[in-house]
Design a protein around this nucleic acid. Structure first.
Lengths: 213, 213
DNA sequence: CACTATTGTGAGCAATTGTTCGCGTCCTGC
DNA sequence: GCAGGACGCGAACAATTGCTCACAATAGTG
């Protein structure tokens, strides 16, 4: 992972159908290989082998290894963002509980869809400024959006909605990721209920008396 | 990271003082190098260079690169576990809020103490069965302990204390880690208050009516 | 002092890696 | 059916890596 001044564009834009096919073969192969070997041990030769193409072909579409992961992650994030936007276009539920549930469900769906890639992402994102930038941006975006919802909503009783929104968003993201990737599988619906309950009670409960210090 | 049948013991047990010194030089150098370059690019030669010792000396105390990270992580985890145990020996506060606060404070302290190492751990733990085993074990231990506390405590109103304990423990661990490592620094005391409030309200609030499905 | 055990040295090996490049094969438009 | 571009190939290169080993320096003991 040395994403400095290197080229990130493929040296060839696909013009024929088989090219686009090869591109796709590379991506799915990379997903498998990264999932099985991790990023460092997931060599480009292994990816080419798994895709049943030559290593040379791989480098005609992706200038280096980083670019492959970058595209993989970007596609995944785009999918997630699209899912969220779609839910926003549909009318949101009224109760805070159900609004939070939407957030949680999107996160869960997102993670269940591609557990392995998510694991690799969690490993490599901190090392790639390019990736972590995208992640931070996405999370800030979600926080801002949620904050607006919180501000408008009469049920919400927290005083600092900015901090609250940030806490909620990162809790959902992190906890969902961790518990789904956990070794012993969990009861997803129950877990969803508990997580939603936790966040809802936090947002709607009257601020407790806080001891100073 | 291929921690299979390989030797994990150093080939030499320190007998003289300077040996122990060298060992320590290696560890602190490794911390710096891993933090700056990441695990994969943090080569053993770089570590030796930073420690101002020969690469040969490094391999007299650590049989391979993995062993260095393993020791680093183990020392960190031991420290964290010790901190938790110490708090347990002191009498715990009565209110659930303050009990949770202890958990949160230990986690925060732990993470603030070694932000960089924690980042590397988060990257490499999923790839090393040895490490993730230790992490899982630690988390299960904490969950079990917290569950006992929850079961005994009259304030607690959740019905499934096992799930609740697991949710709380992993929330604390994950959220603290994420928000402390975040790019824009946050107001720690405020964040601590909010996190404690969230968890406390979850544990003590009357179970809301849950829609089936 | 001398002798031994312990510790330190660093050139260099074996293996692996990401990547290139010259050359075939296939497709498309004329 | 032919020219030329798009696409595919894979042996091989350069760089890097983790790590070894034969030897030198130092500390401990009598």
């Amino acid at each position: 992972m040395t994403s400095d001044g290197r080229r990130l564009q493929p040296r060839k834009q696909p013009r024929q159908v088989r090219a686009e096919l090869t591109r796709q073969r590379i991506l799915t192969a990379a997903t498998h290989v990264f999932a099985e070997y991790g990023y460092a041990a997931g060599t480009t030769n292994r990816i080419a082998e798994q895709a049943r193409i030559s290593i040379g072909s791989l480098y005609q579409y992706y200038p280096n290894k980083d670019a492959i992961l970058l595209e993989l992650v970007n596609r995944h994030l785009d999918l997630g963002a699209a899912a969220m936007r779609q839910r926003q276009d549909e009318e949101l539920p009224d109760s805070i509980e159900e609004i939070i549930r939407v957030f949680v469900r999107v996160a869960i769906g997102n993670h269940l869809g591609d557990t392995q890639l998510l694991r690799i992402m969690a490993e490599q994102v901190p090392q790639s400024p390019r990736l972590s930038e995208r992640m931070d941006h996405l999370e800030r975006e979600r926080s801002t959006y949620l904050r607006e919802l919180l501000d408008q909503h009469p049920e919400v009783r927290v005083d600092d909605t900015e901090t609250a929104a940030r806490l909620v968003v990162s809790t959902v993201e992190r906890v969902v990721h961790h518990l789904i990737a956990a070794p012993d599988p969990i009861d997803i619906p129950r877990f969803e209920n508990e997580l939603v309950a936790m966040l809802t009670r936090y947002l709607t409960a009257a601020p407790a008396d806080r001891e100073p210090g």
